[in-house]
Amino acid sequence: MTGVDPVRHVLFRAGGERFALPLDSVREVVIPQSPFARVPRAGAAVRGAMNLRGRVVAVVDLAALVGVGSETLQAGRGQVVILDRDRRSLGLLVAQVFGVGPLRPDREEPPGSMVRGIGQIDGGAITLLDPDAVAAHSAAQFGQG
C-alpha cells in the first residue's frame, strides 16, 4: 500500500478487462458516431475518425492499443472516452464505462508504460492507465510510413 490519497477515476471495461483513467484527464464519454472515416496509413489499433459535434476526433481501440484483444465497432455498441485539454481530438474506444470511483494503485509500474499500476475495486483487479503514456502510444499509431 502506498501512502497517496485515492484519486477519482473513470472506470471502464475493454477487451474483457477493467481499466481506469483519472477523472481529470477525461473530458466526456460519448457513443461512437458513425460513419467513421478511415485514417490513411494508420496502425492496427486505429478505428478511424468520427464527427463529434462538428469536431473531428481520432478514435483508437484501447484494448488493441494495450494488447488485450480488440472491440468490434458496431452500431449501438461500445463507448468513446474523449480525453481532455490538449488531447480533445483523441478518443478511446472501450466496451463500456461502468462508473467513477476513488482508486489508489496497489502496485506501481515504471513511468513511460501505459499502465500506472493495479488497483482493487469490489475485490477484483483494475488496471490504472497513465493518460500521458496512452496519448503518446496512440500518437505513435498515426503517420506511419
Binding site: 490513411p40 481530438s89 496519448a135 503517420g143
Partner: peptide
Amino acid sequence: LGRPLDLV
C-alpha cells in the same frame, strides 16, 4: 487537424 490526426 487536431493531434494525433495532424501526424498523418
